[in-house]
């Protein structure tokens, strides 16, 4: 309804010309919409994230992207993935100062241009940024439980909807990861005889949503060959389960991805396939 109304108004006002200038891909909006939803949710619900920290993340992250593209002579490079990285970092990283966020954003986005193997950047920038904050920076931490069920439910709904409607991206890795991870959570629940609500409770973790659709799905940092990607997703899921339920440590997802990332160049060597190409509009 609302969409139709917007279309009509846009037609009246002769906005087609403007629309041509906007990205054609609806997923761009879906990603931005979901990221905004989570960010607003975190800003309004999590008492430890400050809007200044979020603003500084975006300022530093985008400036790093501008600088790097300029140095590489790619003036038409896209900023979408940098925006997504900045959303991810704002949602995950917490700090008691204002300098941690911009530093992490600059390192995360800078790493795309520095840490490269076989023409691909090695680490997912948001994942690397989170790990730098966790391991190296004082006064920084990750708050995995701060979303709340209703917000996360809205996120799952939106993201599943957009994945089903848009097929171009490499979502196979997301499905495989989600299936393996949730499968193992369910298996554990059955073996231990836990309350079935444990499963639902795990789904209410915003970090899982963010990780599945923003981090492990990053096509530049996963194996090129489909078979390798699926194997990789299963390994990351197993590693995360071990971290969470074997070692009883927090932040299992980001740790698992960080530890498994060095496998990507190896898997690319074993199963060679052409590198993923972003369409110009989706950057």
């Amino acid at each position: 309804m609302v969409g139709t109304a917007v279309e009509l108004i846009a037609a009246r006002l002769g906005l087609e010309r403007w629309r041509a200038a906007l990205p054609q891909d609806a997923r761009v909006f879906q990603i931005l919409f979901l990221a905004s939803l989570l960010s607003v949710g975190v800003l309004t619900r999590d008492f430890t994230l400050r809007w200044e920290q979020m603003a500084l993340t975006f300022a530093a992250g985008l400036m790093t992207q501008v600088f790097a593209l300029h140095r590489l002579g790619l003036p038409n490079g896209s900023y979408l993935s940098a925006v997504v990285t900045c959303f991810g970092l704002s949602i995950l990283v917490r700090a008691d100062s204002l300098w941690v966020h911009p530093l992490v954003a600059a390192i995360a986005i800078g790493s795309k241009f520095v840490l490269r193997v076989n023409g691909k950047h090695l680490y997912n920038p948001a994942n690397l940024g989170v790990m730098v904050a966790l391991i190296l920076l004082p006064g920084a931490w990750v708050s995995p439980g701060q979303w709340g069920h209703d917000l996360v439910a809205a996120g799952w709904f939106l993201m599943l909807g957009s994945v089903v409607t848009g097929r171009a991206r490499r979502w196979d890795v997301s499905w495989m990861f989600l299936g393996c991870f949730l499968g193992m959570v369910a298996l554990r629940m059955l073996v231990l005889g836990q309350n079935p609500w444990v499963f639902v409770h795990q789904l209410g973790n915003g970090a899982l949503l963010l990780f599945t659709f923003f981090m492990i799905s990053d096509p530049m940092t996963i194996p090129n060959h489909r078979r390798a990607r699926l194997l990789y997703a299963a390994i990351v899921a197993a590693c995360a389960i071990f971290w969470q339920y074997g070692l009883y440590r927090p932040n299992a997802l980001v740790w698992a991805l960080f530890l498994c990332t060095p496998l990507v160049p190896l898997l690319d060597r074993w199963w060679p396939a052409p590198k993923f190409q972003w369409r110009p509009a989706t950057g």
């Binding site: 917490r94 008691d96 004082p138 006064g139 708050s143 409770h201």
Partner: peptide, 16 residues
């Protein structure tokens, strides 16, 4: 019972 299906897990943050 329904709202806390799992035991409480904690972490110590760097927040002071």
């Amino acid at each position: 019972r329904p709202t806390f299906p799992e035991d409480l897990m904690f972490q110590e943050t760097a927040d002071r």
